[in-house]
């Protein structure tokens, strides 16, 4: 347990928190970078997934992408893009986007797909335009599953952003790798604990948002819908 105490000591030492490259800056960097990737994945994946779910065209694309992405080794993707694009944030951004896109796409698609056919038919029958149907019916009812996809993507991105420090100078992976290289277990373990904590906080945050969405989609029997989860 000595190791853990050392790590905690490293974490609690205010000298390690300050300045460029300090823990505080690294946390912001990590979160900001992850948020940018997830936002980009949402900007592409949600419209595409909703369009596929709404029209029913392109289902097989979703299946191929999601199962393919699961098999693709993250580190391989990071290093090959790192070699191709050089040192900098482009390679990890692209690699993380490739990882984040399938769960977002699958969540949006599965969410819209899961809306009862009768509800969609009835909405058309009473004179909703396709756009009103998507906005007023399909999106709110799909929200819990859709958010499940975003949650999977966010977790994966936060997790892999740690690994991104292997090819670029960014995020909480940095002190972890530095500790690894210099045999400083306290630094390595402290950074690891911090990333784990960050991931747990994000996970819990998403759980709250998702159960709120489930309450809106199924106001009478929340929050069981919040448990929907797209495994990535």
């Amino acid at each position: 347990m000595n190791l853990v105490l050392d790590a905690l000591a490293w974490l609690l030492d205010s000298a390690n928190w300050d300045g460029r490259g300090g823990i505080g800056a690294r946390i912001l960097e990590h979160l900001g970078f992850s948020a940018a990737v997830v936002a980009a994945a949402c900007a592409i994946g949600i419209p595409a997934g909703v369009a596929i779910g709404h029209s029913g065209r392109g289902r097989s694309l979703v299946i191929v992408l999601t199962s393919g992405a699961r098999a693709l080794p993250t580190l391989g993707l990071l290093t090959i893009l790192g070699l191709a694009l050089g040192i900098g944030l482009d390679a990890p951004f692209l690699a993380l986007l490739v990882l984040a896109l399938p769960p977002v796409l699958a969540g949006a698609y599965a969410g819209v797909e899961s809306v009862a056919r009768e509800t969609v038919g009835a909405s058309r029958a009473i004179g909703m335009t396709e756009w009103q149907l998507v906005r007023g019916v399909e999106l709110p009812l799909a929200a819990p599953v859709l958010l499940g996809g975003v949650r999977s993507a966010a977790l994966q991105v936060i997790s892999t952003a740690t690994l991104a420090a292997y090819v670029a100078d960014t995020g909480l992976g940095r002190p972890l790798f530095e500790g690894l290289k210099t045999q400083r277990y306290d630094m390595m373990l402290g950074a690891s604990l911090l990333v784990a904590l960050l991931a747990l906080v994000v996970e819990l945050g998403f759980q709250l948002v998702q159960s709120a969405a489930a309450r809106r989609a199924e106001p009478h029997r929340a929050p069981s819908g919040a448990r929907e989860r797209i495994s990535a």
Partner: peptide, 15 residues
């Protein structure tokens, strides 16, 4: 499942 793999590889030896 939410805990990232790389940190877990480092936390496990400590425990």
């Amino acid at each position: 499942y939410a805990i990232p793999s790389l940190p877990l590889f480092i936390i496990i030896p400590a425990i």
